[in-house]
Design a binder for these strands. Structure first.
Ligand code: ZN
Ligand code: ZN
Ligand code: ZN
Ligand code: ZN
Lengths: 162, 162
DNA sequence: TTGATAAATGTTATCTTATAACAATTGTTA
DNA sequence: TAACAATTGTTATAAGATAACATTTATCAA
């Protein structure tokens, strides 16, 4: 069976890098990046666009592995806890974190057409929201900032456009 | 049957105001705020915390009205289109818009404990995100900014705390 | 090495959120 | 009043997520 997307073990350089970094981080933290968890992370990184839990499950089953939704969601929970992936609330999907080494608040540019996601980490956004919260004596626990739109590719922005 | 929350036609001043404003806006726009749509808006405004679609459906059925999920979702779609309500992606819930008259991007402070929501509309946040997007030639279609945390009440912030 | 314990995964069932498809009703206009 | 469009009712189902318990695997002390 041929996969429509390249979700097999293609091992693009950035994917290998992400996996290696995850390995190191988990070792440092004393947490266990098991086969299943590593594979889920790999599936997410191999996808050009964020994936939903059930899409991940499909790939796992294609691997020949047994599993049901909890299998995937537990792996995702671990990866979220470790900051190795992010959940996109507007899409109910998951995407690999570009900076899993440092705790950060991020903003996402999500292309409506091709699904590609860009992860930003602009401290000014974070500060602005913290200021607004502080003014109202509101304690911030988490931020979700997602911008939906169209990426340059899907807009057909000319190559020479500065 | 007694309602746990005050979701009946309590007609708090701000609720009445919101409904009247919705009426006016729809008239100006030539859109139809039908009984069902008005009632759904009223249910949302009567609730101290945002409501899910199925919670709204429960109230409608308590009204003695017939209905199924599509009944509610269609009304919600209309209210969203008209900018009379917002959808909170992190909660899958809906809350009344505080400024339905003018198009705006908003930020939400959502209390994890009591569910209360504060709607902000800080243009600086909007601009910052637009700038980031523009830098990357990304066309912005919608923004979702939700801050999860704890409100002053739930933190037990002292009354005299400046 | 073995037994006890904790952690991770498998499995079944169920819950929540959302939509597709089509029928019936209501409103609008010619 | 007939024709048409918009709204609502109805049934069924898709999609996302979790609860509860069984089984397996890893860890560690004896
Ligand atoms: Zn990140
Ligand atoms: Zn795109
Ligand atoms: Zn608003
Ligand atoms: Zn609170």
């Amino acid at each position: 069976m041929i996969q429509p997307l390249d979700l097999c073990r293609s091992q693009l350089p950035n994917v290998r890098q992400a996996l290696e970094q995850a390995e190191v981080l988990c070792q440092q933290r004393g947490t266990r990046l098991t086969d299943l968890r590593r594979r889920v992370l790999e599936i997410i990184w191999n996808s050009p666009a964020p994936l939903g839990a059930y899409a991940i499950l499909d790939v796992l089953r294609n691997d020949g592995r047994q599993g049901a939704p909890p299998t995937v969601y537990r792996a995702l929970d671990f990866l979220l806890e470790q900051g190795l992936i992010h959940r996109l609330a507007t899409l109910n999907m998951f995407t690999g974190c570009r900076r899993p080494d440092c705790c950060h608040s991020s903003q996402f540019l999500i292309c409506r057409d091709c699904g590609q996601v860009e992860e930003l980490s602009n401290p000014a956004v974070d500060e602005l929201l913290r200021d607004e919260a502080a003014t109202r004596q509101f304690e911030v626990l988490a931020q979700m900032v997602e911008v939906l739109g169209r990426c340059p590719n899907c807009r057909g922005v000319a190559f020479h456009a500065r």
